[in-house]
């Protein structure tokens, strides 16, 4: 695009992001502050993920962007078009064809490969934020690996509800050392992060934090021996493709209580329907 550098950001900003990303990879799950720039879309629309993608993206890459699993929602379409215009890269909706996947709040159903990088958009990078609003304090808690408060929170839910009642942004331990917010992906997706073959990068624009999980790194959802982590999904079958194992969205179809359940991952659902006999 005329008048802009490749992938929108200037080179000095990219170097700052790149140095931060390398440190993030070296310390899995540790949040690192960075100088988030003002982007041509508001905070909360994926500015952190976009800046990470811009720092990583090259001419040969094929980019896929999903929003809650869907390739065709406003956020996903806007970001895909942003990079198609500012970087001229190829884009795709096929998970298997993408080299970089930027995601808001889902991990694709298709298993990712070593050749892929997944970039998460993160609204709140601090897993301890709801327990301790002070950054100074949470930084010290991370330094000391002082995560007892989070276990107490989970215990209180077991005591009150009989189970751990967190359905998304379910806290994880990374590499046995750092407590990490997996971004608001459903807890259903947490097991996919564990020893994933692809490199996982996380960008929080408003909160100005970057973190990462290298391939084959242990990512364990917090739980108790007598209340083990369970990845839950709606107990239904996709109304479009008939998948019994994928993560489902509930869609209200009328004002008389009508509803249907369909795959949240649109590419997964479409591929299944295409290959169905």
């Amino acid at each position: 695009m005329k008048g802009y550098n490749f992938a929108y950001l200037d080179e000095q900003t990219k170097r700052m992001l790149r140095r931060t990303l390398l440190k993030a990879v070296a310390i899995p799950g540790h949040q690192i502050p960075f100088g988030a720039r003002e982007m041509p879309l508001p905070y909360g629309w994926g500015t952190g993920g976009i800046q990470v993608t811009a720092a990583v993206l090259g001419r040969a890459d094929t980019l896929k962007v999903i929003d809650q699993g869907a390739d065709d929602t406003t956020n996903a379409v806007s970001i895909r078009r942003f990079f198609a215009r500012t970087a001229g890269v190829a884009t795709t909706t096929r998970t298997a064809s993408a080299t970089i996947i930027q995601t808001r709040h889902r991990i694709p159903e298709t298993t990712l490969t070593e050749a892929q990088i997944i970039v998460y958009q993160v609204p709140q990078p601090e897993p301890l934020y709801q327990l301790e609003p002070s950054r100074t304090e949470t930084r010290r808690m991370h330094a000391l690996a002082d995560y007892g408060a989070m276990h107490v929170r989970l215990y209180e839910q077991v005591a009150r509800y009989g189970q751990i009642a967190i359905s998304y942004d379910y806290p994880v331990m990374v590499n046995g050392r750092h407590l990490m917010a997996p971004s608001p992906i459903p807890a259903f997706d947490n097991p996919k992060m564990h020893r994933m073959r692809a490199l996982q990068l996380f960008g929080a624009g408003r909160e100005k934090r970057i973190y990462a999980v290298p391939p084959y790194t242990a990512v364990v959802s917090l739980d108790f021996e007598d209340h083990p982590f369970r990845a839950s999904r709606a107990a239904h079958v996709c109304a479009l493709c008939g998948d019994r194992a994928s993560y489902l969205d509930e869609v209200v179809t009328d004002d008389r209580g009508g509803r249907m359940f369909i795959c949240s991952d649109t590419d997964h659902c479409a591929s299944r329907r295409e290959s169905a006999p």
Partner: peptide, 14 residues
């Protein structure tokens, strides 16, 4: 710079 960064990123990630 982009290609070199990706090489260093992959090198540290793997």
């Amino acid at each position: 710079a982009q290609a070199s960064f990706r090489a260093v990123l992959q090198a540290l990630a793997r």
